[in-house]
Design a protein around this nucleic acid. Sequence first.
DNA 1: GTTCACACGGTAACCGGTTACAAGGCCGCA
DNA 2: TGCGGCCTTGTAACCGGTTACCGTGTGAAC
Lengths: 343, 343
Amino acid sequence: MATLRDVAREAGVSVATASRAINGLGNVTAPTRAAVMAAVKKLNFVPHSGARSLTRRKTDTVGVILPDLFGEFFSEIIRGIDLVAHESGMHLLLGNMHGSTHETAAAIAAMRGRVDGLLVMPPDLKPELLADYLDPALPTVLLNYDAGPLDLPFVAVDNYQGAYAMTAALIARGARQIVHIAGPKHNRDARDRQRGFVDAMSKIGGVRNPAILPGDFSEESGAQAARLLVQGQLPADAVFAANDQMAVGLIAGLAEAGKSVPKDVMVAGFDDIPLARHLNPSLSTMQVHIDRLGSTAMMMLLRILRGETLGAASATILTPELIARGTTAGAIHQESATAAPRA
Amino acid sequence: MATLRDVAREAGVSVATASRAINGLGNVTAPTRAAVMAAVKKLNFVPHSGARSLTRRKTDTVGVILPDLFGEFFSEIIRGIDLVAHESGMHLLLGNMHGSTHETAAAIAAMRGRVDGLLVMPPDLKPELLADYLDPALPTVLLNYDAGPLDLPFVAVDNYQGAYAMTAALIARGARQIVHIAGPKHNRDARDRQRGFVDAMSKIGGVRNPAILPGDFSEESGAQAARLLVQGQLPADAVFAANDQMAVGLIAGLAEAGKSVPKDVMVAGFDDIPLARHLNPSLSTMQVHIDRLGSTAMMMLLRILRGETLGAASATILTPELIARGTTAGAIHQESATAAPRA
DNA sequence: GTTCACACGGTAACCGGTTACAAGGCCGCA
DNA sequence: TGCGGCCTTGTAACCGGTTACCGTGTGAAC
């Protein structure tokens, strides 16, 4: 591979001149520039971004660290990030923490010197740990994670409010015995959704200890919940799953047990994954514009890179929207989400 | 941010010793190493990967260039790649050609000096152009693309055979008037699938010029095809869409027009996206293990990086599998896919 | 006590660019 | 013709690591 020195030699100029010509720095005469460009073409020279970023002290790359890469949720986030990054000529370096704390530390450390900033989504990490791993000098925006004491900017979905609104809607629709299928215990999204559910049940439904079944956001755990529900003879006229994936498994499980949705029991999910509208009956859910999560975070990061100072106060909270579909009989009263108190 | 020299100074040793201690290179005494490590801890030193890769002449990163980042298809590919890459401690640098030829060139050029190898999926690029863009010195594996004259290793899905098998199955199931919804004209996958369909129709069905409707792989174009079909009164007892996405739109369109699937018309797709099994009736399709496309390509790239020489002869062809579901009435005779001639 | 081998650790070149600074050439003006 | 100033170009330091090569010091062998 040709280097800048090869080009300079070929064009009969110094490396400095070659560099200036290639980068269009003005103080190069037209003939000199032409000679350099001819050499570039002849040798098929492409600048070595690694070396370049060493001196320029910027890499035009942002690191994206996600808990996993599975499913439409993450691909939508990446797409949202890429959309904005691409406009600014930035590249994406993917890091995957593969669910392990140790891997998370490694993923973040490996980014040093490769990226100008970081987009991190650590749904089940304690803030103190995160603080240890992150380099304070590296601009960082958190995804779907309120860093609390860390004073880092973040973009999050108002899970509490969303769950509250959905629960309210189910109650308004006439449900009295609503069961919640929770997400992973350590997952913040899951916990916030559960809190929203519990609070709505208490404040609107007047129910103190609503039934909650365990789950882990997987389709299988939704099916499992269906079994528990039916075999345990848990009285329920509606089930609110903490995400759509589990709602899908739940519906399949209920169908197997001979329960009809929404006649025997209403079902609601959270996220509005593409599959939701295609189910039969179609799934009522809280719509989250997942790609906006990514693009908003990326825009915040770009602002920091341009010199602005952003802290936790600059956080953006995306409010999910209630989408009433077939699994709640299409007759949900669309309660105003803003009626719910903030967490 | 602390540099190696800072660490060396703090530990009272030279940079060389610090480097050796940190990288565990043996010729350092235990006390010296301890001193260095203490300094590392104290200064919170993390090696600068950019600088390191400059001298080591490897980046532990592979570039992944995809035509787009939309939908489950690409997220599955990335997941497959990551699975293998992660095991070898490699990182992923994402490049998106955003559908434009010019962007493709830019994306590939931007990778120079950042990656040790490239995984490229250029579904609608001419091989000659691709050859111009690619650096022959950079190990490259193509995804879903037979480079033909380029002698580059690739991983592809046997689209021809898959379409042939599906068409054969529809015929075996009793369909006589099968309509194909094609994909984008310049897309190689789409063209191969169309060829498989046409050949099967001719060789097995004895039909010379089977009906083909235009499409572009989008759900909307499937719905459009449904309209054409119904309004144009095209006689059809089965429709074979070139991908699942279009089949989904098609089914919705047919339902709107009052046509029943599979009673009035059978429907088949291609890809087996996760949605397929959840439709009602569930979608018959050719199952492609998309993640394997990615992981296989990554494994080939790793072999090249380890010193092996791989050319077009080392290509891997993944054979899709027929999945008969509800939209073909669950009664398709599973014709052996191997009965079809190779393209 | 001297010599030698060997292990440890330091100096400096290098990876491939960028850029501060200096040098040289050309011009205009007196 | 001589001088100053500007514009172009070259030299070399630098980014932050790695590593070839060399020097030093210790212990063992004579």
